[in-house]
Write a protein that binds this DNA or RNA. Structure first.
Length: 171
DNA sequence: CGAATTTGACCGGCGC
DNA sequence: GCGCCGGTCAAATTCG
């Protein structure tokens, strides 16, 4: 799996993965519960939106299982995407600027969940970050939405430096 | 002083 | 309807 993030010097990533299991109805950790209530139970595809080699946002494409007899499978894009990272630090700098707007205690978890919104004007991408109790070296990050602007922070990765000269306009 | 964070209040959905 | 739960708001506070 492509890991979309730059690697500033204060980060220590040793692994990352997409939590495909949680998109299949497992809401035991309280995350992604709306996937269930929305009555979409099958994940057709989980992929990262990559434009010109640069990560621009997460995307989940879901095929609805219920519904219309006359219509073919309806595709719904939820733009929600989760991955977990093994890191000692909570603050994972992914190149975008986030404003914290909430913090909640999570059931069955001694660590709080943090809610962030992208500070860019008109870009309402959200993410939530929580540390797992069962392995407190794991940080689970859930993104919702797609950035409508390029990241504003320079990174030390050469490919990212090249890609900063490109503007992504999804609509 | 403007921007970001903190933190309790508030709100909507859901189960009983 | 009521309470719980997850998510968001917003006033107060802190930070740069």
């Amino acid at each position: 799996m492509f890991f979309p993030v730059s690697s500033p010097s204060n980060m220590e990533h040793t692994s990352s993965q997409v939590l495909l299991d949680n998109f299949n109805g497992d809401t035991s950790n309280g995350l992604l519960s709306d996937m269930k209530t929305d009555k979409f139970t099958q994940v057709a595809e989980v992929k990262e939106l990559v434009e010109n080699g640069r990560f621009v946002g997460p995307e989940i494409e879901i095929k609805s299982t219920g519904g219309d007899c006359c219509r073919k499978e309806k595709k719904i894009r939820k733009h929600r995407y989760a991955f977990q990272t093994r890191s000692r630090v909570d603050i994972l700098d992914d190149g975008y600027r986030w404003r914290k707007y909430g913090q909640k205690a999570v059931k069955n978890n001694k660590f709080p969940r943090n809610y962030y919104r992208c500070t860019h004007q008109g870009c309402n991408v959200k993410k939530q970050v929580q540390r797992l109790t069962k392995d407190e070296t794991v940080v689970l990050t859930t993104y919702e939405g797609v950035h409508t602007h390029p990241m504003d922070k320079p990174v030390d990765d050469f490919q990212n430096i090249l890609n900063q000269n490109q503007i992504y306009t999804p609509f």
